[in-house]
Design a protein around this nucleic acid. Structure first.
Lengths: 198, 198
DNA sequence: GATGGTTGTAATCGAATGATTACTCGAACC
DNA sequence: GGTTCGAGTAATCATTCGATTACAACCATC
């Protein structure tokens, strides 16, 4: 396998593991095992655990923005009214659960915002999404705030695995229905009560 | 000092440190130093680091609910219209920045939701707030969702220390103004560009 | 069939960390 | 004035983990 392919594979495995256990809670050996390789190789490929984590965060943000820009392009060529864009981007955001650990790794990056290195990347990444929504998607600042708010609730619900209580706690069920809407089935496939959890 | 006082002091110190560095990223020695005592005493007082973290999370949730119930009682006795309650609770939530690390420790608990022990506490705590807003405060489910969303955005912005860019990045400034409103000054006191970020 | 570059691993090291043990100090109490 | 008990610490232990080093296997290409 070429080192570029290996790199991609490690980042994917690391996204899942970092999403589950956070930056400090993840060992390079866990990432290595998830990628099916040896621990020293992970370290040598990225230099340090911190560098790997930054790559995971940046890759997640890049996927997010690619997905958003796709939706924006589709929307522009469809001639639909402006307000149809919001749910499209919202659905695209939830669709990212298909990339296991993406939302959760991003949140892990955000809560590590106190770290001098990770914090800079987290703030820059967050502001990049903010600027996209306002400047490219054309949202008003209050619309951006609202959109980001719902995104953060979605992400937190995924972090605490609220969907695992679906059908077993009425409040959790109600909240999951409200937050994930008609994307609920997709979410339950990954995080539902029956989903094999890792 | 009595052990009860010491306990309270350790929880306060731990809230600050766990908020900064997360569950796995925090050492019991850091908590001990922040509380001005020795590391073994921290461990013996709470048994394990995990037990201490759970106490921190539960104490934070308790403070949050006490504060919300105060606002609710005030609101009820004031005879103001129902919609005046939302900003009151929102302001009360931001006011909790006075308890250093509270928002951030809660978020650290949420992103550790994959942990078999912490996860249960995180989900239970989140649902407790949900139930309060819907059943005690009388919010409709969609109102609860919106309120929680804004709360999560607020918390994430605090986690990534976005206010530290206030006045130095125009997007960050705009976002902080929108998210913190007239509580901005209070937030900047703790997390602003000039605040000593101990 | 040597040579060199690339992919990959086994072995290991040093530092950090949660926890345990054994101890000190001081005050209340009989 | 000895004794007990709660508050608190110094010393230390066993693990864990990120990182380093040295080495093995493969595969071009001359």
């Amino acid at each position: 396998m070429t080192s570029a392919e290996r790199r991609e594979q490690i980042i994917q495995a690391a996204t899942s593991v970092f999403g589950d256990r956070g930056y400090h809670g993840t060992t390079t050996d866990q990432v290595a095992k998830a990628a099916g390789i040896s621990q020293p190789y992970v370290v040598r490929m990225f230099g340090t655990k911190e560098a790997l984590f930054l790559e995971v965060i940046n890759a997640a943000l890049a996927m997010l923005l690619v997905s958003f820009r796709e939706q924006l392009a589709e929307h522009r060529s469809s001639g639909e009214p402006a307000e149809a864009l919001v749910p499209k981007l919202g659905n695209a955001f939830i669709d990212l659960v298909k990339t296991r650990g993406l939302h959760r790794s991003l949140m892990q990056g955000f809560v590590s915002g106190g770290d001098p290195v990770i914090g800079v990347a987290a703030r820059r990444g967050f502001l990049e999404v903010y600027a996209f929504l306002r400047d490219e998607a054309g949202f008003a600042p209050e619309e951006v705030q609202t959109f980001l708010s719902y995104g953060m609730l979605t992400s937190v619900l995924l972090c605490i695995e609220m969907p695992s209580l679906f059908g077993r706690d009425s409040d959790a069920t109600e909240l999951a229905c409200a937050a994930f809407g008609h994307k609920l089935d997709l979410v339950l496939e990954t995080m539902g009560p029956d989903a094999a959890s890792a």
